[in-house]
Computed example of a mutant assay.
Amino acid sequence: MRRLLLISNSTLHGSGYLDHCKEQIKSFLSSSVQKVLFAPYALHDRDAYTKLARTAFNEMGYDLDGIHEHKSAVEAVKAAQAIFIGGGNTFRLLKTLYDEKIVELIRERVTNENVPYIGSSAGTNVATHSINTTNDMPIVHPPTFDAIGLVPFNINPHYLDPDPNSKHMGETREARIKQYHEYETSPPVLGLREGCILLVEGDKATLKGKTGARLFVRGKEPVEYQPDDDLSALLSN
């Protein structure tokens, strides 16, 4: 049974790293997990990023290793009790996952071996169908925009609602997602506002966190969802 905790953002305004979702993480990880494997690939300074994540998980009662601290990323994923992929630049992250040849392995371990997966921001992006709806700049070129595919839809983390008082004349987030949906093969996109989390357990998906989400489906008007709402229908797309 796949178990995913897909978090919109690591840091919520007014709080520290992962503070807003620590209780969700502790509830999500089973009692059999003692150590979490962390992929810091989305940021340049992997050591500093791992230190930040290690401090947060130690406070929650878990050990944490950076995947780059192992001789082999493949062997590290094979031995992982749980996987956490953090935020940063989604293009850099996905390219490195492909470079290290662990995309299919992560998919196998999470979907068939019940290894818990936690993603935040870019780490949430790469868990989905593709990274086409990320907010990030393509600072590097992954071999494909196809992501790990743990769910059959896309997520837009840090989703921002249109501000009627803004003088900014560029496209809103909603407009950009609708542009993506001009293509017939584009899947649904779940806009996760900051503070929002999607919990997936097997064939059940539930919205969690402090804020709501906005679901975009091609050819339909966007629909609002609030914490504890059931989004399981998305898993059958």
Rank of each mutant, 00 (worst) to 15 (best):
G87S: 10
L12E: 13
H13V: 07
F145W: 06
E221G: 02
I131K: 01
R218S: 12
I177M: 10
H68D: 09
T111Q: 09
K51F: 14
H129F: 07
P143E: 06
I197H: 08
T124F: 05
R54G: 00
E174D: 06
N156R: 11
L231V: 08
T172W: 06
S27F: 15
T134V: 05
I106W: 14
Q226W: 14
H141M: 06
A42N: 10
S72W: 06
A39Q: 08
N135D: 11
L198N: 00
A79I: 02
A48P: 11
I25H: 13
E100M: 10
F28R: 10
A147C: 12
T206I: 13
A39P: 00
A122V: 05
L94Q: 03
E201G: 15
V189P: 00
I155R: 03
G219F: 08
L18E: 05
A53K: 01
F145R: 09
F28E: 08
L150N: 02
T111C: 07
L64R: 04
R92T: 04
T96N: 12
R218Q: 13
N237M: 06
D229I: 02
R92L: 03
C21T: 13
D47V: 15
I197F: 10
G87H: 13
V126E: 10
D229E: 10
V200E: 01
D163M: 00
P227W: 00
P152D: 03
G88Y: 09
V103W: 12
L192G: 04
E171K: 15
D228V: 04
D228Y: 07
G202S: 03
G212N: 03
G123T: 04
S32I: 04
T144G: 05
P142D: 02
H129K: 14
K210I: 12
K35P: 00
N125C: 14
V217D: 01
L12W: 13
G219K: 06
V115D: 01
L150D: 02
P164M: 06
Y225H: 15
